[in-house]
Simulated assay, not measured.
Amino acid sequence: MSIILDIQNVTHGFGDQIALDDISFSVKKGEVVGLIGRSGAGKSTLLRCLCALERPQKGSIILNGTDLTKENETSLTKIRREIGLVFQHFNLLTSRSVAGNIALPLQIAGWSKDRQKARVKELLQLVGLEKFEKKYPSQLSGGQKQRVGIARALAASPSLLLCDEATSALDPEATTSIFNLLNDINQKLGLTIILITHEMDVVRRFAQHILVLDHGKLVENGTFFDLLCKSSDQGPLQALLADSCPQLPSELRNQLQHQPSPGLMPVLRLIMNENTALKPLFSLMAERFHVETILLQGGVTSIEEKLTGDMIIGLKGEKVFEAQAFLATNVQHMEAIGYVPVDR
């Protein structure tokens, strides 16, 4: 896939405060990218730079071959039509109907009424609101409002869609519905989407490529599976992954020891890819090493519709160290958490 967005050495600040510190990454055409970080990480500033509402003090932002940092305001007005924006709180005009809200960017772009009407009809069908064109925002649920927001963002056929905390104002059911819609749009249109969020579970399910910001720095750049294999590292990633990864139950955590001794079993975290997750590794260990595997937390899940193993286990039996060596060569990532009593 070709590169649609190339960010190189972007630095931006406000007074003495650095908001973005030498950020570099690229996005391929058709990718779904998750941009995550805690409050104050720099996500909002980067978003404003990506859609040319803020000009960074250093670096380049190249969209479809054009460096946004070098264009004048007249050129940027046209370029911004290549970028769709979906907002956290919808930003719909209450005085306009659903159709009127979707048509707004087309009116600004000078489309004829007939073209506007045809495009609005097409977009209503795309987002599943065919019978809602005459309704007003006050008559819609949160999920329906966001569907209108997505349709409006797609009106001018952008090449890049930026979703700024697009589901944080929605309940879990509506959140799933909206992201399923965005996934369908990505598949049908080949549209490049950047999801700006602080919710790791959202990007786990929908993003192919993940960027992690912390205090203005890009601290991680890879797939969610890559991040899982680093989750024991100290720092911002550990806190962001806490709700998406298995954790040792508190009653075991309180008994956790860091040195082996008689009566203790090793506790391990295992990460397995789709080729390994369904292999009978534990049965093989029982047969070869007479070791019993105890699942303490986690199991087999899916990332980007691929099976992935992410679990915490305990081992007890005759040859636990040999079993650990066997696991280390058969899973993608293994980390030793500590030791807990075999019989509690």
Score class of each variant (00 low, 15 high):
residue 134 K to H: 15
residue 102 I to T: 11
residue 113 K to W: 00
residue 137 P to K: 03
residue 95 S to K: 11
residue 95 S to N: 13
residue 102 I to W: 11
residue 92 L to Y: 04
residue 140 L to M: 04
residue 140 L to I: 01
residue 129 L to G: 10
residue 110 G to Y: 08
residue 136 Y to V: 02
residue 123 L to K: 01
residue 115 R to M: 02
residue 109 A to M: 05
residue 124 L to T: 08
residue 92 L to W: 05
residue 123 L to C: 05
residue 127 V to G: 06
residue 105 P to I: 01
residue 125 Q to R: 12
residue 91 N to K: 10
residue 101 N to R: 13
residue 112 S to W: 06
residue 136 Y to K: 12
residue 119 R to S: 01
residue 139 Q to F: 01
residue 102 I to Y: 09
residue 107 Q to W: 10
residue 93 L to P: 00
residue 142 G to F: 06
residue 131 K to W: 11
residue 138 S to I: 03
residue 98 V to P: 06
residue 90 F to G: 00
residue 116 Q to P: 15
residue 125 Q to T: 13
residue 99 A to V: 06
residue 141 S to P: 01
residue 112 S to Q: 10
residue 99 A to H: 09
residue 133 E to H: 14
residue 139 Q to C: 00
residue 128 G to L: 05
residue 135 K to N: 04
residue 90 F to K: 02
residue 100 G to L: 13
residue 99 A to Q: 12
residue 101 N to W: 10
residue 99 A to P: 11
residue 111 W to Q: 06
residue 130 E to S: 14
residue 106 L to G: 12
residue 125 Q to V: 10
residue 135 K to W: 02
residue 103 A to L: 10
residue 97 S to G: 11
residue 122 E to G: 02
residue 105 P to N: 07
residue 107 Q to P: 11
residue 119 R to M: 02
residue 103 A to D: 11
residue 99 A to L: 06
residue 125 Q to S: 14
residue 116 Q to N: 14
residue 124 L to C: 09
residue 90 F to A: 02
residue 107 Q to Y: 12
residue 133 E to G: 04
residue 100 G to E: 13
residue 99 A to C: 10
residue 124 L to H: 09
residue 109 A to V: 01
residue 137 P to L: 02
residue 138 S to F: 08
residue 101 N to A: 11
residue 97 S to T: 15
residue 127 V to E: 05
residue 122 E to A: 07
residue 137 P to H: 03
residue 100 G to V: 09
residue 112 S to F: 05
residue 124 L to S: 08
residue 120 V to E: 03
residue 114 D to V: 12
residue 132 F to N: 09
residue 120 V to L: 04
residue 113 K to V: 00
residue 113 K to F: 00
residue 106 L to F: 13
residue 129 L to P: 12
residue 138 S to K: 14
residue 106 L to P: 14
residue 103 A to C: 14
residue 117 K to A: 07
residue 127 V to A: 07
residue 127 V to K: 09
residue 138 S to Q: 14
residue 125 Q to D: 15
residue 120 V to I: 09
residue 95 S to D: 11
residue 126 L to R: 12
residue 110 G to V: 00
residue 128 G to Y: 07
residue 96 R to Y: 11
residue 108 I to W: 10
residue 107 Q to A: 10
residue 101 N to Q: 11
residue 90 F to M: 01
residue 89 H to P: 03
residue 90 F to W: 04
residue 102 I to M: 09
residue 126 L to T: 12
residue 138 S to Y: 12
residue 98 V to L: 03
residue 116 Q to A: 07
residue 135 K to A: 01
residue 120 V to Y: 07
residue 113 K to A: 07
residue 119 R to C: 02
residue 107 Q to H: 13
residue 129 L to M: 13
residue 93 L to V: 05
residue 142 G to D: 05
residue 123 L to Y: 04
residue 138 S to R: 15
residue 89 H to E: 09
residue 110 G to W: 03
residue 119 R to E: 00
residue 122 E to Q: 13
residue 128 G to S: 09
residue 136 Y to D: 02
residue 124 L to D: 05
residue 118 A to I: 10
